[in-house]
Design a protein around this nucleic acid. Structure first.
Lengths: 101, 101
DNA sequence: ATTTAAGGTTAGTCCTCACTAACCGTTAGT
DNA sequence: ACTAACGGTTAGTGAGGACTAACCTTAAAT
């Protein structure tokens, strides 16, 4: 589920590292209290939901924020909140009408 | 963590039930394949992050969407995405400047 | 060619979290 | 008072997910 993507603190931390610019897996791991393996697995998840992209540079994999993906997820959430509030508003109006008859 | 609030499918389903109007715990449980206890625990979480409020009506607890809370969470996410995109944009510009000198 | 460093994958462990069952207090009805 | 229904709490269980360690492939360096 898309919501889960940033649910884990470590995954969140990785994402925030990437906000400051593209990084290789090892560079991220060095600044975190987890192994490269863990970082690699988290990046896999982030990539899967479209928040980051990767690109080979010789030996290394450079990860960076996927601007389109972030925007897409933002829109997704936006729509969700929008619909929630609207649905509830409609329900409230319907309820008010029931009261007055 | 606030992100976790809608991470669970059952919790999501409960929230969506409430979009159609206020409901008692038992009413929600009856429309879901889980016990009242589970629903009660989920509502506790939703209440804790400010997505719903509760109100006693005699014997029962009526839960409803907290419009302010939803709006607040919407704003929180909005800001998060905003900052992500902005930070990355700045990083990209900085990087471009490095290249050209 | 060997060595070194990178990163992805897998098996196994541990911990978190969703869930049930059993219990409790509270309220309304008889 | 007794009963029945509601809903919150707790202990215990099971499943999923985060993590490490070990292994593998690939690419650059000597």
């Amino acid at each position: 589920m898309r919501v889960q993507a940033l649910g884990d603190p470590t995954r969140m931390a990785i994402f925030e590292r990437l906000e400051r610019g593209p990084l290789a897996v090892g560079e991220i791991a060095r600044s975190l209290p987890v192994t490269r393996s863990a970082v690699s697995q988290h990046l896999k998840v982030l990539k899967h939901v479209g928040l980051v992209t990767s690109q080979r540079a010789a030996n290394r994999q450079i990860y960076r924020i996927d601007v389109d993906g972030v925007a897409g997820l933002r829109d997704y959430f936006d729509q969700f909140w929008q619909e929630s509030l609207q649905a509830f508003k409609h329900a409230a109006e319907r309820s008010a009408k029931e009261q007055s008859r």
